[in-house]
Design a binder for these strands. Structure first.
Lengths: 142, 142
DNA sequence: GAAGATTGAGAGTTCAATCTTC
DNA sequence: GAAGATTGAACTCTCAATCTTC
């Protein structure tokens, strides 16, 4: 179900905005940030991406004029990534499309009770995942 | 949550068996098939993959000796894909690892009620997805 | 001409090596 | 030496073109 839902949402988003799922995530993270600007490192943590993946993807999006790299003030090793004017317009449009898509595929499909229940289940699984990991690692050494 | 869970499962599976998620899906589908053998087309439908993706992936797995292509009897356009002896051993081991991982990350995390509820929710979303698609397509033309 | 499949090129992702600044 | 980031090569996936058999 989950694979199906993800691919439906990605397909619709790409159709109506031309953005891939990855593009959308980057733009969304930046537009939520103060100054529409974020340290590469924070973006990486938020998206849980490999550092090289972020770097390559940022290069491609920079080419397309949606974002740009700027020198970081506090730490000259790091770099900041910032939405361009174009990027702001693109994500503003994409946002409403995205809401509509998620509403149609997910929110409207479920009853309010099911939605609550899903939120609860998600929370539980996330909480449990660190425990699960240690269990498996312990088993692996036996 | 879903992204997190998927990547946890894939990471553990790869650690304990050396198989990627894609490898595992192919082997599992073949091992469930009669004669451990399947038409490329059926495998494609089952996995919902692009035809070229399947073809490339099969070539790589063939190189690694887990599966092999054989001419198809009924239709000489098509080709059958079959588990090799090695492939059978690999998937047999991976199966028990996989069950253990899913149990640890998912099944054990939830109460029986939550599991039932999740199954129900999944079913509902899948059922609804065709409806959602037609809604969006209708909107798109206005 | 349509359906089943393969091929090659281009885009996206990962891994290891590197470079710079802390 | 460690942390932040980039680069290049290898691997995976997608798209379009092609080849063969129905």
């Amino acid at each position: 179900m989950q694979a199906q839902l993800n691919s439906s949402i990605a397909r619709e988003l790409s159709r109506s905005t031309g953005l891939s799922d990855a593009d959308h995530k980057v733009l969304r993270a930046l537009s939520d940030a103060p100054d529409q600007r974020l340290r590469a490192r924070s973006l990486r943590d938020q998206l849980q991406w490999e550092k090289s993946r972020l770097s390559h993807h940022v290069s491609r999006m920079e080419q397309r004029g949606m974002i740009e790299r700027v020198a970081c003030e506090e730490d000259s090793r790091g770099s900041d990534i910032r939405l361009t004017h174009t990027g702001r317009k693109v994500i503003a449009e994409a946002c409403s499309d995205y809401s509509r898509i998620v509403r149609d595929y997910l929110i409207d499909a479920l009853t309010p009770e099911q939605l609550d229940s899903l939120a609860d289940i998600s929370e539980t699984i996330l909480q449990h995942s660190t425990t699960a990991r240690s269990n498996l690692l312990a088993e692996a050494t036996t």
